[in-house]
Structure formats: C-alpha cells, structure tokens
C-alpha cells in the first residue's frame, strides 16, 4: 500500500489536540465512532455481515464446504481466513496479490477466532480423517477510513454468528447454526504523544507511530495481540491498553447481542 501522504500541519494538529485531551472529530480518547452491525446481507453465503465503524465499512462472508482435515487433527474442522484490500476501498490500495498489510489483517482476524476457540471445531467433523467442514472467512474491505483491524474482526464474528452449517446442500441432514463457544472482540489503540486513543481514524492511524490490537474473549481474558508499526510502546502503556481494551470489548460485544 502506498502510504497516504499526511501534511506536517495535520500531524502537528492531531498531536497538539491529543496533548490537550481532544481529538479532531471531538471524540473522547476511549470513544468509538458509531458502530453498526448487520447480518445476512449476502444470501449466497452461509453467513455474512456488514460492519461500519464511522465511515469504515467491511463485508464479511462465510462459506462452508466439506474438505479433507489436516493429518494431525483428523477430527476437527478447518478455519481459513482471507482479507482483501480491494482498490475500490481507498486511493492507496492497488490490485494484485495481497500485500503484507492485508496478510497481517487477515492473520490477526484469524488469530482472534482461532485462539479464543470461538468456533467449536470438534463439532465440525463429518467423517474422521476423511471429511470435515472447512470454514472460509472472507473479509472484503469496502471503505477504508481507519481502524480496519477492529472492523474486520467484528465483521468476522458477526458473520460467524449468522452462519448456518449447510448440511442440506451436501445431503448431510438439516441445516444447523454454526456451533460457537465464544465471542472474541478486537480493540485497537494508538499512541499519540503520551495519549492513548482507541479506534483511530484514518488520519490518526497514519500519524501514529504504531498501533496495538488486543483481542479478548467474553471472560475478558486475552486471546491475541498484535503490535503493528515502527514506533514503540512502554510496558506500562501496553498494560494500560490491555486493561481498557478488555473493558471496551464488552461495549462492542453488546453490538453483537441478539444477532443470529
């Protein structure tokens, strides 16, 4: 991704606002932009969601099909997560094979779903060693206005909650909801000077030296983490982010309540 060019004056503006306890769009440091979650937006998919965080917009589709299990886990289903930064989502995205930032977003989204044990993979075995369900989670970014990480992660779990195992299609009986054990939620923070801001906007994300994504499960324990970017964080800053992330995740998780 060629980087968005940021005027020095904008950088100074964001830093000096943060030093005064303020943000360009008037939010509090720990305040998200308005979040909307819709599910069932793609009929052809086994599960789908459209998540908006402010103007950032992603669509996640889940497809399932029977396939061969990995030899070392003959009785468990398989998760495959992909994320595309399609050129329609930003002037800085180009077509072609996924670049490292897209791969990182996909792998961190995958880490949250996998490590929290969100999907009960033991229930996705069709025939031991021969056939298991493969769960394909595909994230399409439609509009990149900052904080893709949280949007992708929220979209993935929303789409999974919406997913029906397509037994009928493959002559395996009735369709049933995908068995889920947990609801992992990612919360991303950046450091601007001494301030820690959640849900970075596009400009904030571009001027921040680095960002830290913390994925927590419904008990508030950590399931995954990723620092991204050249900058540094002190151990105390990281501990602080972990603390507010697990609190904030509960607020985000409310957006997923009642979804099926």
């Amino acid at each position: 991704m060629s980087e968005d060019v940021i005027a020095e004056i904008k950088r100074d503006y964001i830093f000096s606002l943060a030093a005064q306890g303020d943000r360009a769009d008037g939010r509090k440091f720990d305040e998200y932009r308005p979040i909307s979650v819709e599910v069932g937006v793609i009929d052809k998919a086994e599960g789908s969601s459209r998540v908006k965080i402010g103007n950032t917009q992603v669509i996640v589709g889940v497809k399932m099909q029977p396939g061969e299990p990995f030899p070392d886990t003959p009785d468990t289903g398989v998760i495959i997560t992909n994320l595309e930064l399609v050129p329609l989502a930003s002037p800085t995205f180009e077509s072609g094979p996924p670049r490292e930032d897209a791969i990182e977003l996909a792998r961190v989204t995958d880490r949250g779903v996998r490590e929290s044990g969100a999907i009960d993979l033991s229930k996705l075995c069709i025939e031991s060693g021969q056939k298991v369900w493969m769960v394909f989670i595909d994230v399409h970014v439609l509009d990149h206005d900052g904080n893709l990480m949280d949007a992708a992660s929220l979209g993935a779990i929303a789409a999974l909650k919406n997913t029906k195992v397509p037994n009928t299609k493959f002559g395996l009986g009735e369709d049933v909801p995908l068995p889920l054990n947990d609801v992992p939620v990612a919360v991303t923070a950046i450091n601007v000077g001494n301030a820690i801001l959640l849900d970075p906007s596009l400009d904030e994300g571009n001027v921040a030296p680095c960002r830290l994504t913390v994925i927590t499960n419904k008990e508030g324990a950590l399931a995954g983490m990723q620092k991204s970017g050249v900058g540094t964080l002190t151990p105390d800053q990281i501990k602080y982010i972990v603390h507010i992330a697990s609190e904030k995740a509960n607020v985000l998780r409310e957006k997923l309540e009642g979804i099926q």
């Binding site: 490590e115 830290l212 399931a223 995954g224 990723q226 620092k227 540094t232 151990p235 972990v242």
Partner: peptide, 25 residues
C-alpha cells in the same frame, strides 16, 4: 530496545490480564 521500549508485541492463546502483566515483566 535498550531504552526499555517495546518494539514487537504479539500474542496468541489465552492469558488473563494479571498473567499478561507478569508475562510482560
């Protein structure tokens, strides 16, 4: 780095906040 700043931080698995604090130290 030598100034005690964290330049790489990743995690997967399951840790409580308290365990994470100890792990980082």
């Amino acid at each position: 780095n030598q100034f005690g700043e964290i330049t790489l931080c990743q995690m997967d698995g399951h840790l409580t906040e308290e365990e994470f604090g100890r792990a980082l130290d």
